[in-house]
């Protein structure tokens, strides 16, 4: 579904990413890890359309990706992705409003009723049906992320992008969110890209784990070489905890430490 051909990204003479070739199938759940500043977020921004590649292409079904964000790609940021001036329900209804009348964002009465029903159903799925009339500032961090996910899924995007969505959450809440995301991924057959700092999370959630790291180093000019994909692991979820998996985990940890934290 998604083809990435010889992708480079540089700012001035600082090369961030280089020589990325890969292909992603519909239904893949790709988790991306790497040291801070290794370019995994830049890569996500290129998928999103807020950054453009310096060289190379990203093709979606053979067509180059639009150079600005659009409804093909849903996004959940670590924070600020919900609208603070709208109630939980309106936050999801506005997704329908934007997609159905892109210029004004206004819905007539009948379309609004339909949107409301769809929004309530989606909020029920993410477990927010008890908080429909609340405003985002009255929600906990976990609930805000549930809302952001509901918003992003309303339009059934081809690709769902998650930018460290659970980075600011407590471990217990995080486990709940993992189940939620896995459930939605299976149910809607989503294609997901997720940036995370947490290797265990990456192993647990992903069907493919990408590790971003520099292959080449120039100690005199560290910025002249960018990071690339050093690992592209197929994860069979059932084997995730066996010996082979554990050995891999250790190996990757050793390579990406000390900047990748292994959170419990």
């Amino acid at each position: 579904m998604l083809q990435i051909n010889n992708l480079w990204k540089s700012y001035g003479d600082q090369i961030v990413l280089e020589r990325i070739h890969t292909e992603v199938q519909a239904g893949d759940f790709v988790t991306m890890v790497g040291a801070s500043g290794c370019g995994k977020s830049t890569f996500l921004k290129m998928l999103l359309g807020t950054e453009v590649p310096s060289k190379g292409q990203i093709l979606l079904d053979g067509q180059p990706l639009a150079a600005e964000p659009d409804a093909d790609r849903g996004i959940v940021f670590q924070q600020y992705s919900v609208f603070p001036h709208l109630s939980v329900l309106d936050n999801v209804i506005i997704a329908c409003a934007f997609s159905q009348s892109p210029w004004t964002g206004w819905l007539g009465r009948t379309r609004k009723a339909a949107a409301r029903q769809a929004a309530e159903a989606m909020l029920d799925k993410v477990g927010l049906s008890h908080a429909l009339q609340r405003y985002p500032h009255e929600l906990s961090g976990g609930m805000k992320q549930r809302l952001a996910i509901a918003q992003a899924l309303m339009l059934k995007p081809r690709i769902l992008l998650l930018d460290e969505p659970f980075g600011a959450l407590d471990p217990g809440i995080r486990a709940d969110m993992h189940e939620l995301v896995l459930g939605l991924w299976r149910e809607h057959q989503l294609t997901v890209f997720m940036v995370t700092h947490d290797l265990k999370e990456a192993f647990y959630l992903g069907t493919r784990l990408w590790v971003f790291d520099k292959v080449r180093h120039d100690p005199q000019a560290p910025h002249r070489y960018g990071a690339s994909l050093t690992y592209d692991l197929d994860i069979n979820r059932k084997r995730g905890s066996d010996l082979q998996g554990a050995a891999l985990l250790k190996d990757i940890q050793a390579r990406t430490a000390p900047t990748v934290a292994l959170a419990g």
Partner: peptide, 16 residues
Amino acid sequence: AEQLVKSQTLGAATPA
């Protein structure tokens, strides 16, 4: 800016 990006991924044009 996250809010503006989010709106775009929901299909909104500039006036909306």
